[in-house]
Amino acid sequence: MAGRRLSPAIDIEKYLRKRNLPHIWCAGCGNGIVLGALLRAIARSGFRQDDVAMVSGIGCSSRLPGYVDFNTLHTTHGRAIAFATGIKLGRPDMHVIVVSGDGDATAIGGNHFIHACRRNIGITAIIVNNYIYGMTGGQVSPTTPKGSRATTAPFGNAERPFDICLLAAAAGANFAARTTAFHADKLEDLIFKGLGRKGFSVIEAITPCPTCFGRRNQNPTGVDLMNLIREQSCGIEPGGKSEAPAGIRLGVFADRDEKEFTEIYAEMAAGAGR
């Protein structure tokens, strides 16, 4: 894969709450890669720490805000986007970032997710998709591939998975893109792009969960899963390997510049007369 290397000159340590480290994540987990990419993207965006609110729900990736030195809010399962909506409306000048897992964002929080897309509110949602409920020990999630095993799908998942980016694009998000923890530099770029968008942006990061997903699905280590993710990845851009039907389709699924909700609200309020 061509392209830049990770941004080596960026100091992300200043963003870490070191008293809370080490983190709780397993060896081989992709959350650390997402954290690094997110912090580099924030640094590149030039945001002041005081102006950033980071909101999460419940799950492994939702512990991320506890490790970073911003205004951080760890909420209830699935509801991060609802709390973030209140923050953005309360302080439209703040940069509001949501970090959520696949179960958090698309099962229990699915309704909030699609409505945030519809409102096109200025929030950047990082959806960390490891295909499984990690924190609760490996139960099937709305993105678990059909046939994959989970503690609550011992004979293989009988259900079809969501495509989070297509869902976001159809529901009206300004920006929806997918990449993987393997493509860490691309991930940083896409988050950077999402942070620059005024409307709702979704960056889905496919990550390995060796402990809960890989062990039950013939890929017991982080390296196994990273190799699998690399092998299965295919682009959706013209000329890419989009013909690969079983692959992980990477790319930008929605890229538009429709007006952001709090801006529309401010205009409406001005029109209503103070």
Partner: peptide, 26 residues
């Protein structure tokens, strides 16, 4: 809206109180 405040109709009551708590934190 006419007093510099903010009104939003959310997708359900869980979200409504969540948004209110988020706004309260600001």
């Amino acid at each position: 809206p006419r007093r510099g405040g903010c009104f939003v109709q959310m997708e359900d009551e869980i979200a409504s109180l969540g948004a209110a708590i988020g706004a309260s934190l600001t």
